[in-house]
Design a protein around this nucleic acid. Structure first.
Lengths: 167, 167, 167, 167
DNA sequence: CATGAATGAGGGTTCATTCAT
DNA sequence: TATGAATGAACCCTCATTCAT
């Protein structure tokens, strides 16, 4: 059975994704998680801290993304990685949606400043490690372009989904 | 000299871009625009209406984008269009930033639902009109891919700018 | 008729004197003053600011204390001053009580740090001005002792009153 | 080694003196004393009880003040007593400070109503016993004046110390 | 067109206290 | 004794909106 702290985190993630961080009241999180307000502040110093913990959790999940990939050839690893991302994109839409929300909203961006930078660096480094094996000289620029492309695709995927879902 | 209404709109746009819609108090808009609260509610029915007006204004500016393009050949028009977009991206970063903010934040997305859809349709139609001249059969899919690409590029441009600006 | 702001100040002063600053809820002030919570925060930036304004008001009242005194001789002025203080002590017990409360409670003392110092300086200076006329060489030490004596008397007056009022 | 209960009492006294009773959270006492919240409520029925116990402890310390005095002549005893008080005032400033805090703050005054009265009576009686030996007829009024004077001096000592300590 | 006093609902946070372990 | 998760009431404060002037 889940601990109450986990339930809080889960409820918060759901609500942040659905209504945004600012529009989610702590009281609503409590209702969904079925805990008292006091408990939330027993486990988290503030509402901001909840967001930070969610974001950090998702970062470590992201990092475990490339670890167990096929390692026969670097090219195959990259292909696996891409497939993995698309698989997640389709099955974890809410997660990506929330990450976009968070990173493009000034208020949450400020709260997560450090965490966002850390994640960006980690992502870049691990992608670069892959490209180092295939084209060491251009690995930097390749990684940058690769990540940008993935972002662009994710963006258009999510936004087209969003824009037309009510038709 | 600018009308007071224009000053309100301008102040609001600046603040929405900088702090987000939710975190911008009407009182703060008043201060920046140097008007009273009463006046704001004389010109706009609600805070939401301010956002809507800003968004619609930016939509019509966007539409005027393709109108005065070079029309010698369709290909040249498209090239001009792209250049124009990049020019704006560089010189109007705040504007694009705010549009991303707005469109990826559940609360504002809901407010602007209709306007966002209208803009998406208009954009798609006008891009499609261009591709109709070059490849009528594939104009639909081409437009879709074209817009997605532009979005992706804009996204990566803005986010890389954001992520590294303090280094 | 009193302005609502004055009513707030008055209600707050009464309640601070009776229950102390920390134990007085803003909501209670509102009830007593018959205004909404919002109005309190329209006129005052915070609960602390209410306290500060009350204290500063009482400081200026204090200062006007020596101004209209009998000025035939300095000695008479001092005698008048003492009589005036005792008169106030008896008729304005609540006021002195609150001032003692405030100045001996760490939380409020911190809030009023600047104001307390300013008042102490002003009081000392104006008393010293009086003694300068009677004994210029010893005016400093005389003022200090004079003020201490008055304080001590006020303290014992108030505390004996407090300690035995329920017998 | 100190018992945990003693540690709680000590931590509480320190914090009450520094920040006042109301502004001291039980959680903070726990931190400083390095005990759990549960333990505090095992030893004390409530936060109020902690205050009461501290106050009563300080009362019995006060009473032991006159006991071991020089008893050659009543006059000498009184002189010794005064010296003793001044010695304590200088070396135990925090203790006196806290007592003033407590006794002039409506919320704590109410909690300690009984204890304050008891202490006042005891103090008065023991001072009166001394004066009975020197001037039995006026011992009552003498005791009253004597205590008031001491209070006044303590007050001015503490407040001048407070007001000028940061200069 | 213009002001700003006034409202009231709702938000984040704190904290004394309880209780199962 | 000893712990700390859990509760819930209360608190300070914010803010969109209205309205008399």
């Amino acid at each position: 059975m889940k601990t109450k702290k986990e339930r809080i985190l889960e409820a918060a993630a759901t609500l942040f994704a659905e209504h945004g961080f600012d529009k989610t009241a702590v009281a609503t999180i409590c209702e969904l998680a079925n805990v008292s307000k006091g408990l939330v502040y027993h486990h988290f110093k503030s509402k901001d801290e909840i967001l930070i913990e969610i974001f950090e959790k998702s970062t470590s999940e992201m990092n475990s993304l490339g670890e167990d990939e096929n390692t026969e050839t670097p090219e195959m690893t990259i292909v696996d990685l891409i497939e993995n991302i698309f698989f997640r994109l389709e099955n974890n839409r809410q997660f990506f949606q929330m990450n976009l929300n968070i990173m493009f909203q000034p208020s949450t961006k400020k709260i997560l400043e450090r965490q966002i930078k850390k994640r960006a660096t980690q992502l870049f480094d691990s992608v670069k490690a892959l490209f180092n094996k295939t084209s060491p000289k251009k690995s930097g620029i390749l990684s940058y372009v690769f990540i940008s492309e993935i972002d662009g695709i994710a963006l258009s995927y999510l936004s087209s989904f969003e824009n037309y879902k009510n038709d």
